[in-house]
Computed example of a mutant assay.
Amino acid sequence: MTERISHHIPDALMASYVAGTLPKPFALVVATHVSMCDSCRANYLAHQAAGGAVLENIAEEPLSGDLRDRVLGALDDAIDLDDPETDETPRDGIYPGPVMAALKGKAPRWKSIGGGVRQCIVDMGREGSARLLHIPAGRPVPEHSHGGLELTLVLQGGFSDTTGHFDVGDVEIANDELEHIPTADPGDDCICLAATDAPLRFSGLVPRILQPLFAI
């Protein structure tokens, strides 16, 4: 699969992911892509190694007296397995381990959002949302622009828009300057993992009316 991937995670996003500062919805997309792409996995490991070297050269600081109690207290906190190195959730068909972990090991629960397109929201919070999109082969998504950043990772099939073609494993990075009509390839239906930090801006009246119902 890796040899077909031509759209990768930019270095700045990878650095933010490794540092733990990337919002959770985007971190899920990055973790999933890294699990599919040897090139980005190597980049991920390089960033980890660079971060470790920086830590080794930081001057020691005195520890507070309550550090031991705070560390022991944190052992009961929930852990998010969005790291491709630690996430051991098995792949289920087209869904890599990080996606299956977000789905809690269950099959997606699809809901129609019109035009034959279906979605399954896998994460939603103050930082944004991540969802699976199922787009019938040959069908377009309504024309839209973006209120912020959108990462879209192809898991099955593919799609094209004004920026090019995206195959399995490819990531499209869209910002508020891009207005497009992603159209699924003929053949297999297109299934994507998409993450946003702001609502989309649809051009058509009907999508705008329905948008609040589908939290897009």
Rank of each mutant, 00 (worst) to 15 (best):
E3H: 12
I5G: 01
H7E: 14
L13C: 10
L13E: 08
M14I: 08
A15Q: 15
A15M: 08
A15D: 15
Y17L: 11
A19V: 01
G20S: 13
L22Q: 03
L28W: 01
V30H: 01
H33W: 05
H33G: 11
S35Y: 05
S35V: 01
C37E: 05
D38M: 13
D38K: 15
S39Y: 09
A42G: 12
N43L: 10
N43P: 10
Y44E: 05
H47G: 14
H47Q: 15
G51L: 07
G52Y: 01
E56T: 01
N57L: 15
I58K: 06
A59F: 04
E61W: 09
P62K: 03
L63V: 14
D66Q: 06
D69W: 08
G73Y: 01
D77C: 11
D77H: 11
D80A: 12
D82T: 13
D83R: 07
D83H: 09
T86R: 02
T86L: 03
D87A: 10
E88K: 14
T89R: 10
P90E: 08
P90R: 02
P90G: 04
D92H: 09
G93L: 12
G97T: 08
V99E: 08
V99Y: 00
M100L: 09
A101M: 13
A102F: 00
L103D: 08
L103A: 03
R109L: 15
S112V: 06
S112F: 13
G114V: 00
G114C: 14
G115N: 04
G116T: 07
V117I: 15
V117H: 08
R118L: 10
R118V: 09
I121N: 00
V122M: 07
M124H: 09
R126F: 14
G128T: 05
G128Y: 02
G128E: 03
R131G: 04
L132H: 04
L133S: 06
I135F: 09
P136K: 02
P136D: 06
G138P: 06
V141N: 02
P142C: 00
H144D: 03
H146Y: 01
G147E: 03
G147M: 00
G148I: 00
L153A: 01
L155P: 03
L155Y: 02
G157Y: 06
G158W: 00
G158D: 07
T162S: 14
V168L: 03
V168Y: 12
V168A: 01
D170M: 05
V171I: 12
A174C: 09
A174M: 13
N175W: 04
D176W: 11
E177Q: 14
I181W: 07
A184H: 02
A184C: 11
P186W: 12
P186Y: 09
G187P: 12
D189C: 04
C190S: 11
C190L: 14
C192E: 12
A195P: 13
D197K: 04
L200H: 02
R201Q: 05
F202M: 03
V206S: 00
R208A: 01
L210S: 00
Q211H: 09
P212M: 10
L213K: 02
L213G: 10
F214A: 02
A215N: 15
A215V: 10
I216E: 05
I216S: 07
